[in-house]
C-alpha cells in the first residue's frame, strides 16, 4: 500500500531542513521511549543504515552509535553500509513489528542491499522493541495528544488493513 499521491506531493515539496527537524524530533522521542533500542546491535551499531521509502523522494540515514538520523533527497543520499527500500507504510509497519520482515521480503515488497549481517541485527533489534508510534509520539502533540493518538491509530489501522 502506497501513500496517497497528494500526500507524497506535499511531503516531497517540503523544505528538507523542515523535514530533518521534524524527523530528528520524532527519532529522539522514540529513543527516549525506547532507550535500549540499539542494544541488540552489538558491533553493528557503528554501521550506517539507509531507509528509502519508494513512494517518497527522501532517504533516512540512521547511525545507531551516534544516535542520529539524517534526511536527504534520494539522489543525494550518502553511501551506507546497508539499505532497505519499500513503501513508507511498509517500513513503518516493520518498525512497529506489525508485519514480518521475511514475509515482506518473500513477497518482493521490500528490497534490501549491502551488509546483511548489520541489516538482520537491526531488523531483530527493531522487532524486539515494542514501538507503538501513535502512543510513543502522542506526547509531542502537547494538549492535542489524545486526538493525535486517536487519529494516528485510525490511520495505522487502515494502513495495516492494506498490508496484511
Amino acid at each position: 500500500m502506497l501513500l496517497p499521491r497528494p500526500l507524497t506531493l506535499v511531503i516531497d515539496r517540503l523544505p528538507l531542513a523542515l523535514v530533518q527537524r521534524v524527523i530528528s524530533q520524532v527519532f529522539n522521542r522514540a529513543l527516549q521511549q525506547h532507550p535500549d533500542l540499539f542494544d541488540r546491535l552489538g558491533h553493528e551499531a557503528d554501521k550506517r543504515f539507509c531507509f528509502t521509502p519508494s513512494d517518497l523522494d527522501l532517504a533516512f540515514i540512521v547511525h545507531p552509535v551516534s544516535r542520529s538520523i539524517r534526511v536527504s533527497r534520494k539522489s543525494r543520499a550518502p553511501r551506507c553500509d546497508a539499505g532497505v527500500t519499500g513503501p513508507m507504510l511498509t517500513l513503518l509497519a516493520l518498525l512497529e513489528g506489525r508485519i514480518d520482515g521475511d514475509a515482506v521480503f518473500f513477497s518482493r515488497s521490500l528490497a534490501v542491499s549491502g551488509d546483511m549481517e548489520a541489516m538482520l541485527a537491526l531488523r531483530n533489534a527493531l522487532d524486539d522493541c515494542s514501538f507503538d508510534l501513535p502512543a510513543d509520539l502522542a506526547g509531542m502533540a502537547g494538549p492535542l495528544a489524545g486526538p493525535f493518538r486517536q487519529l494516528a491509530e485510525l490511520v495505522r489501522q487502515r494502513a495495516l488493513a492494506g498490508l496484511v
Binding site: I99, A103, R123
Partner: peptide
C-alpha cells in the same frame, strides 16, 4: 525462531 513477532503471533 528467525522470524519476527508478527509471524509468531499469526
Amino acid at each position: 525462531r528467525q522470524r519476527g513477532k508478527a509471524y509468531v503471533a499469526q
